[in-house]
């Protein structure tokens, strides 16, 4: 592993009630890369992200982000890391603008949230309650919140779920331009066109176990298929037949 690694996961394991959810997962991600964590629902993607961020405690293993331990150096680390969780969590009667202002106030160095809202096409919604936004608008708002600290690394859990085709393309474009400026992106997604479009590296999880780690091209080459979606399904469903024999 080189000094260039911005995210490093070593031998991460986690069980719930004796059932393993993540099994001995190791990853490393370089600065400026877009990394996709893939897998079916329940494969352990969100748990992996949460163990990496320290919102859940792993049973064993080590995580460093930007050389810092998310448990012990939380305050310093999250000055430089943005996070969008799969579900949006917000106060009941808070407006878009208020949520952005509070988020901005947490950080030393920030981007102008009004500019970000405009980029993501929800500037005219700034006076609305967050609860009044559509699912897609709320999704975009929480990507904006993750980008407010001008992060060096951003975690996006299911970044475009609920967005229409146009909005997805817009989000891809913004992320690609941020990547060019050196942003490292860790994402999960259920859209294989999105993964092909954005990701330099991927990891496919099946029942908490890494079944593939490499590039999209390598994945396709290692399978009997020539389309990535088929490859992905083959990896996530392989041996499925055997289980029911």
């Amino acid at each position: 592993m080189s000094m260039q690694d911005v995210i490093r996961v070593e031998h991460l394991s986690k069980s719930f009630n004796g059932l393993p959810v993540i099994r001995n997962l190791s990853l490393s991600i370089k600065r400026g890369a877009v990394f996709g964590l893939l897998g079916a629902n329940g494969a352990g993607k969100s748990t992996t992200i949460e163990c990496m961020l320290g919102t859940k405690k792993a049973d064993s293993g080590r995580v460093t982000i930007l050389g810092k331990n998310p448990w012990k150096e939380r305050k310093q680390l999250f000055q430089r890391v943005g996070v969008q969780f799969q579900e949006a969590h917000y106060q009941e009667k808070i407006t878009v603008q208020e949520l952005c202002e509070v988020t901005q106030s947490f950080y030393k160095k920030t981007d102008n949230y009004k500019k970000l809202l405009e980029q993501f096409g929800i500037f005219e919604k700034r006076k609305n309650f967050v609860s009044e936004l559509s699912g897609g608008q709320r999704q975009r708002l929480f990507i904006v919140l993750a980008l407010i600290p001008q992060p060096e690394v951003v975690f996006l859990d299911e970044l475009t779920t609920g967005l229409d085709a146009r909005a997805r393309r817009d989000v891809w474009k913004i992320l690609t331009s941020l990547k060019k400026k050196g942003l490292t992106i860790f994402l999960t997604s259920h859209f294989m066109d999105e993964v092909e479009n954005l990701c330099d590296g991927i990891c496919i999880l099946r029942k908490g176990q890494m079944v593939f780690h490499g590039t999209v091209e390598d994945a396709i080459a290692s399978s009997p298929f020539d389309k990535f979606e088929d490859t992905y399904l083959w990896y996530t469903e392989e041996e499925m037949g055997n289980e029911y024999l």
Binding site: L53, G54, T55, R74, K75, Q76, F78, Q79, V81, V83, F85, H89, Y90, Q91, T103, F106, Y107, P149
Partner: peptide, 9 residues
């Protein structure tokens, strides 16, 4: 909401 605060400083 506190969980989201936890991944901020």
């Amino acid at each position: 909401i506190l969980k989201r605060f936890k991944v901020t400083p």
